[in-house]
Design a protein around this nucleic acid. Structure first.
Lengths: 221, 221
DNA sequence: AGGAGTTTGTGAACGTGAGAACAAACCGGC
DNA sequence: GCCGGTTTGTTCTCACGTTCACAAACTCCT
């Protein structure tokens, strides 16, 4: 309604909405690839696997980017969401711990295509120095300070065993990283102002197991 | 308060609580390894990275397993939570898609140690037949029906590229799998009664990027 | 045995998120 | 220029999740 400057367009977007924006982004990309230029909230909601009312409400936090009676321009909306999330810019990222998971992450194409650039792969084992994974050289963990400073890295990924994760996190924080994605199955303690998100494979399976168990119990036959 | 039979002890546990139970389980395991036999809600909450009030409320849904004025017996509580989640029993699991991520999952020790047993690795590429990963033979995807039936598999893991994921899910559902953990960056459509949980690496990074962007904007210098 | 100190379990207040429903706004045809 | 049909943006209500605060209950010490 009221005119807004570009920077204040996003006052305070609810966490639940923020978590869904990347899903909408992907759905919109998929629509573009299918050659679809315009879509309704209903169509986009289906593609994203959510309810259309929720979708519209989520989008309303960003601004008013649709046209009543018509729907949304796919490319335009996609750009607006991308800008809101911040994936229109380039995010340098370091990955620490080049085990099986680190390998998988280094090779994951979904990072690169969304503005994330892996600037370094770090491993504590000095024997791995010089090894190359996904076209990126593996470097000793000790070089993290230099790498972070030189590349302006703000986001770090931890793919080490659990026992090493806290030390890695501390070191990351010390050299200025303020967002951490943690794959190690452990609770990280970080100072205020640093964001940590965790991805835990076994927790997800355990949640499924809980529901599976109840399904079996619920229906006696 | 009122006496309960073992089976009805868990009437309806909130989703948010279910998602935290595995975290408590891990924290308790960690305490046991440290030789700690008893703990207060405050200590356990710290170890699990949550607020103690929330922890107590979560545990209260399971029953009354603590002792006022004392705390919780670590082993006893651990067993109760494990039983509630269902990880005291053995869960056979199949993993489909043996790329980088599939490799990492097959080698992930956290599964085995929590009651999940990978009974088969499946890949659509027939050339990979006979290959061995983490001591488990890779088999053609077509054998999924036999494998699921013979082993009573209820949980499937999808680690394929996005374009193959829906077909894999359909096939899984067709042969009786009712819980799916999806690592492919796509929305899966499944019939009612089938649970899907998704883990999306790039979404997590995008959420971090959003907050990172706002940090930078928030403080003008 | 009784009282002080400690810790759990839970009721109640508060905040956040989800979904239904509808008014506002837009397009196209006449 | 106006009207019917369509779709967005928003308001309202309800359910869920979190946190506070405290009574109940247990241990230990005297």
């Amino acid at each position: 309604m009221t005119s807004r400057t570009p920077t204040d367009s996003a006052r305070d977007i609810p966490e639940a909405t923020v978590a869904r924006l990347p899903v909408y982004l992907r759905a919109l990309t998929s629509l573009t690839e299918q050659g679809i230029a315009t879509c309704s909230s209903e169509e986009l909601a289906t593609a994203a696997g959510v309810n259309s009312a929720k979708l519209r409400k989520d989008l309303s936090y960003l601004g008013s980017y649709g046209t009543r009676g018509v729907g949304y321009d796919v490319d335009y909306l996609r750009y607006q969401i991308a800008r809101e999330i911040g994936v229109t810019q380039d995010w340098p990222v370091v990955i620490v711990g080049i085990g099986n998971l680190g390998h998988a992450l280094a090779n994951f194409s979904g990072f690169r295509s969304r503005g994330f650039r892996v600037v370094a792969l770090l491993d504590a084992d000095p024997a791995r120095k010089g090894e190359e994974v996904a076209g990126i050289e593996v470097r000793p963990f000790d070089e993290i300070d230099t790498i972070v400073r030189e590349n302006g890295v703000a986001i770090g990924v931890i793919a080490t065993p659990a026992h090493a994760a806290q030390d890695v996190a501390d070191r990351m924080v010390a050299c200025g990283i303020s967002s951490i994605l943690n794959f190690a199955p452990t609770v990280l303690t970080v100072p205020p102002g640093v964001d940590v998100r965790k991805v835990d494979l076994s927790i997800e399976l355990q949640i499924l197991a809980y529901h599976e168990q109840r399904k079996a119990h619920g229906e006696p036959l």
